[in-house]
Design a protein around this nucleic acid. Sequence first.
DNA 1: ACAACTCAAGAAAACGATTTAGTAAATGCA
DNA 2: TGCATTTACTAAATCGTTTTCTTGAGTTGT
Lengths: 341, 341
Amino acid sequence: MGESVSLKDIAKMCNVSVSTVSKAMNDRADVSSAKKEEIRKVAKEMNYVPNYMASALKNQYTRNIGVILSEETGQGLMHEHFARILNSFKDTVEERGYVITFLNSSNSPNRFSYMKQCQYMKFDGVFIVCADYHQEEVRELLASNIPVVVIDHTLKRHVNIASNQYGDMRRLLQFVFDRGHRKIAYMHGKNSEVTRDRLLACKDFMNEHHLEMPKEYMYTCPYRDAERASALTKAMLALPDRPTCILYSDDLTAIGGLTVMQEMGIRVPEDISIAGYDGINIAGIVRPRLTTIRQDTVSMGIQAGNKLINRIEFPGIGLEGEKVIVDGMVEPGESVGVIGR
Amino acid sequence: MGESVSLKDIAKMCNVSVSTVSKAMNDRADVSSAKKEEIRKVAKEMNYVPNYMASALKNQYTRNIGVILSEETGQGLMHEHFARILNSFKDTVEERGYVITFLNSSNSPNRFSYMKQCQYMKFDGVFIVCADYHQEEVRELLASNIPVVVIDHTLKRHVNIASNQYGDMRRLLQFVFDRGHRKIAYMHGKNSEVTRDRLLACKDFMNEHHLEMPKEYMYTCPYRDAERASALTKAMLALPDRPTCILYSDDLTAIGGLTVMQEMGIRVPEDISIAGYDGINIAGIVRPRLTTIRQDTVSMGIQAGNKLINRIEFPGIGLEGEKVIVDGMVEPGESVGVIGR
DNA sequence: ACAACTCAAGAAAACGATTTAGTAAATGCA
DNA sequence: TGCATTTACTAAATCGTTTTCTTGAGTTGT
């Protein structure tokens, strides 16, 4: 622990100055190659490891990226969709020599605001997987000039890696439409940018096909709340004029709906069709396999990582807002049947 | 960014020396309370944020904990059980003023070994959620004198937060036994400490109840591989003398088994009973609700966090191995039926 | 009134790296 | 040979804290 070797120790061993050792390690021009080799050899023998704090103090960068993953429901890392994106992001930035550290979201006595935490730890950039954009400290962070990349939220000055909510939702509707469904219900999530885009897609699609989605086919259900989805599904099934297909806001609520149907002896997809959204692991495990939108979380993480690092390493390239749209794809599954067969 | 205010700036503003400012901020005795107040007021007005690098360089500690979450299957953060533990751990250490940073597990060009990463970043301690204990660099890290806490792996010199595999497995067997099951199959995971403990529990329980678990009731299935579990379940259902209850190594494989049964028209739990392990979210969503062992991931994370910080802050208290056993509990669910009813 | 203290502040060294400025020796060129 | 340039290295300042050692003023005790 304490006995770590520093440049000074190597300098002493090699009978050279500390600056020469530093230059040798950083492969600077003004050290002869003979000395460079010798110094590096000794450094390796002495098991030299540079001191992050010292170089970060001296340099302008830390190669450390702060991560915010803060959710109303407090699921945080247990949210598979976000966990997937973060995992891919982590791999991407690690490959480019960066490291990630979580920002304190809530607990901890007299914690700093997000922005102060960034100043304190000198993060080179911040990746917001999920946050409450109404929060004052989030706005403060976004107003500062630290590079930020976020998921699924449009910003004036930062990068938004956005899944193609509008397009994906349309594709899903088309898939369902193509199988003959006309009475389509949508159990959408609570109000947010994501929800609004999907609802818009829904409205546009319906209009274009001269269909209507009556109010009683549109329930609001909190994202990932399977219990609530079960209850709402039951209510919807009790309608005098049942939909032939129910779309859910995510896979967990869809499974919540599925279970209630199975309990009631309603067969999926023979009696009614359903579809989820996201394409998390479990969607392919349940039977019938869920029809869903498989979001390309790997691509989202990779793009988020690369965009952020580019903004860090080439500042000035662009501080204006940028929206990278990542398409998802319909995962056919087995939970949407063909009408009239 | 660059325009951050330092102690020097405050000193200038207050017409005092830097050391006085530092002492005032750290509430040292040898500054008059009048000056302290004045300095703190100015510091607040100037939006002073301490420089983590500078203080970490000077101090011995960083209040940063390294996290290793490296799995054969590469699921990493997508592994809900581990994600739950990590989430609880994160909350715990944040409450005590610490921050967590992921260690580079694999990618990244010329990455340091785990131990060198620790020396480089000067982590105060390391939390190993999951790692390959055969790896040389893991052994090297464990041999060093940095405080380490791990999950479900016994070590001579470190803290092991262990779910009570043996006891939990026995409880599950007892639950199944109490419902009349005698022909119990176990689709256990691949060889590991966890698997061995559960198998031992199985063997002991069977012996004590003068039962036997024949070889054809014991299949090996990789953890969380639902596809594989489906296939193996099919094979097991084809046995001339079927078990009345199949235990799986985790909830995902159990659901894999469940789906194959539903496809074959075999009713759970009327025709056959099943049970999972872990108690992840989905276990309570599928129908029938899965009978499973609900692991206390919250407690595991809390204990891991507190034990680690205690070892960090009070070194010398004990460097010997320690095993903290955390009990899980049987989640009755609906997937185990009563025999002879 | 004078030694012995306490109190409140400052100066300076240290942590470990990087970088700028400086210097001595070696080389180039006429 | 003499002057300019290059080469290879060192000394010292710097990043922003923390801490130890001084110091001078004020207080106490006899």
